[in-house]
């Protein structure tokens, strides 16, 4: 047991956030219920499943893939994933001999509408600074070693432009439904620090 008083403690940082809410509410700049709704949405509804849906559709439907290449913003919006920040989306496609990696060297710009909120490592200074200088070293840290001849292109996100990596469709998935394919698309594969899951990994999970 600690010997502090039984009164409440509020950390400096919590008090600063409370102060922002108080002042902004009193001045009429914010609606606290709307703020709560935003938290709820980001915690429950927006996440990498949205991006996996986009990727699986691009794998299954050549027309959709072509649209995604041409105008990713519109193709993604068509599935109901609309950006609240108004930025443009660009889809970049991995293929034989070509790998894409996304970073934001400036801060932490991220395609929220399709991937949710960025993971901690995406926001970390080592990732932000090294991804451009030594992308292969960064990928190796994630356990991803690409063939010698594969080119790695790094895309630096901005407030206006965000990127979605479309990983290569794994072999052995011919005839899979869009929904089953989406199950192979992990979050990191859409940032470029991983590949899509192998079908065998999922078969093993099923057998366990």
């Amino acid at each position: 047991m600690h010997d502090h008083s039984d009164h409440s403690h509020m950390s400096d940082i919590e008090a600063r956030v409370r102060a922002l809410e108080t002042v902004l509410t009193e001045k009429g700049y914010i609606d606290p219920a709307a703020v709560d709704a935003i938290i709820q949405t980001y915690e429950t509804e927006i996440g990498p499943r949205n991006g996996a849906h986009v990727v699986a559709k691009a794998w299954s439907d050549p027309d959709y893939r072509a649209w995604l290449e041409e105008d990713a913003t519109a193709a993604i919006h068509s599935l109901g994933y609309v950006s609240r920040q108004g930025e443009h989306m660009q889809a970049v496609f991995n293929g034989p001999g070509q790998h894409h990696l996304v970073v934001c060297t400036l801060c932490s710009c991220y395609p929220w509408s399709v991937l949710g909120l960025p993971p901690v490592w995406y926001k970390s200074p080592p990732f932000r600074s090294r991804a451009v200088i030594d992308p292969r070293g960064v990928l190796a840290d994630f356990g991803l070693v690409l063939p010698e001849g594969t080119a790695v292109t790094v895309h630096d996100s901005t407030a206006e432009m965000r990127y979605l990596v479309v990983p290569e469709r794994p072999e052995g998935t011919e005839g899979w439904s869009e929904e089953a394919l989406a199950g192979l698309v992990n979050r990191d594969s859409m940032i470029g620090t991983a590949l899509a899951d192998e079908p065998a990994e999922h078969a093993q999970e099923g057998a366990r």
Partner: peptide
């Protein structure tokens, strides 16, 4: 989460 949502809302 609160700081994040305040920012999104103000924007």
């Amino acid at each position: 989460a609160q700081a994040f949502a305040l920012t999104v809302h103000l924007h």
